[in-house]
Amino acid sequence: MKWISVKWLTVYAVVYMIFLYAPVILLPLFAFNTSTIIAFPLSGFTTEWFVGLWYTDTLHTALGNSMIVGVTTALVSTLLGAFAARASARFAFPGKTGIVGLIMLPLVLPEIIVAVALLVMLNQLGMPLSLWTVVGGHVLICTPFSIAILSSAYRGLDRELEEASFDLGESRWGTFRRVTLPLVLPGVISSLLITFTISLDEFIIAFFLTGTDVTLPVYIWSQLRFPAKLPSVMALGTILLAVSVLLLILAEALRRRSAARQGVDTTLAGV
């Protein structure tokens, strides 16, 4: 696009970023606003909505539920992702494209389809809905992300490194402990953080599959109906955003450290 000057592209990029950040910037603004009506002009600064969150028991329950779901999802999907990423980065086997394609399918499948399909199966099997059914659905959609992160970690791991360790007299377990694990560990942690964050934010599957125990997004959904609750929701959203961003920065830093350790160019890996 050289015929369009760089100046106009830059202007466009700035406008686009404003578009991207418009809702994100509003979130803290209204969270600290004294008025319960979510509209301009702002009426004054307050932290009462944040303080209020501290005393909302239903929120704490929802948060606890989300933590259970998020942590379990992160552990299981990272484990499943590690198996699949290792297999696809290291080995050739029949049907590989199809198998990997099937595992990555939830990435493009509408979440409502995943949710509805699981709901139908659980109903048919007569299994009650609970936080664990939510975990089941979340693992499904988080595993592809884990695979994407860990694949780049495993690809950077030259197979000759493991062979060299083995050749130098180390056992398979010793090779895993002394070579493989240190080299992919940052990727594993990065995967744990990202999958946790996705699970924490996920609404559609949680909405369909949860029973009486609600997760945080389902709680937010229920609160959106009550105008008086909106400022608290804004405050909650602000906290969630801050936590997500912190986790992401951590994940990105770890991923880059892993790439640097493996001597890989960091600009493109993992994108």
């Binding site: 198996f83 297999a87 290291r90 086997f93 990997v100 099937l102 693992v139 499904l140 595993t143």
Partner: peptide, 19 residues
Amino acid sequence: AGQGLKLISPTLLYVLVML
């Protein structure tokens, strides 16, 4: 082929059952 299939089987099994 054997090792690769063995390694990917837990994930594949999960996706078969849950998806």
